[in-house]
Design a protein around this nucleic acid. Structure first.
Lengths: 132, 132
DNA sequence: GAATATTTGCAACCGGGTTGCAATAGCTAT
DNA sequence: ATAGCTATTGCAACCCGGTTGCAAATATTC
């Protein structure tokens, strides 16, 4: 498995990885918890931390429902899948707008950027259509 | 006072407003709490909520140390001081880059934007200079 | 000045996140 | 196989920011 990228593939870890890649969108720890009731909070937490250290996923935050974790599909290099995220205020889901890259800005002198987060909030197409 | 914009100017509210405008940058509730020890958490919380309802301040979130509150200096209209924010990962302060507007993106069909948040993380000039 | 409405402090609660610890599961080298 | 070590896991407890109920204090109205 992809696990050959640095982490020992235990049962738990496989389940968590699976769950993440099945839901095509970033999940909170809470969301993971109730999708997987065989594993304890702490287990999920530690696994996510582990995955992060090994650059398998990265965290984004719509400051609404806590941090969300998303698998890195940045092929080779650093975690450079910098795309815009959209958080629906109706269904409270967060989507990756993969093909919309984050526009860059020029910072004032002295500021050293390390990461950027472009977060749009509003209503998603699905919620827009039926029922507000 | 500016309070004539909809809220009754009680002692507490004045103190909180003062504190906000003195520190030129967005503060967390926690930061407010220990700058003002005369007022209880809940008081600060309720006051901030009130201010928000009356469009006197708006919340931004570097998903690091919780939500931060910043006075609206959008003169007339809606809360449209949409500028970039910078969060220093060393001193954990958050700055408003007032003169850098958030670049707009074109969303896919169906997505309805309501608010945008452009958050840069890195090292601020001050921390950059002396000691990492 | 009594009756009513608003604001406040306190204490308790809530939920996401985090850690200590002891039980378990995996490995290693006899 | 087996004793001995390490890594992983579950559980329970904890921490902390945010939030609410309630009763005391304050302001407002008549």
């Amino acid at each position: 498995m992809l696990e050959a990228k640095g982490v020992k593939p235990t049962a738990n870890r496989l389940v968590i990885l699976r769950t993440l890649q099945e839901s095509g969108r970033p999940l909170t720890m809470a969301e993971l918890e109730d999708r997987i009731d065989s594993i304890d909070k702490s287990g999920i937490f530690r696994t996510l931390a582990l995955f992060q250290q090994h650059h398998m996923l990265h965290a984004i935050d719509d400051g609404c429902n806590g941090v969300r974790y998303e698998l890195c599909h940045a092929t080779g290099a650093m975690d450079d899948d910098r795309h815009v995220h959209f958080h629906c205020e109706s269904c409270h889901r967060t989507f990756c707008l993969e093909n919309i890259p984050v526009p860059q800005v020029i910072l004032p002198d002295g500021y050293n950027a390390e990461s950027v987060n472009y977060m749009v909030k509003g209503i998603c197409p699905e919620c827009m259509k039926h029922g507000k």
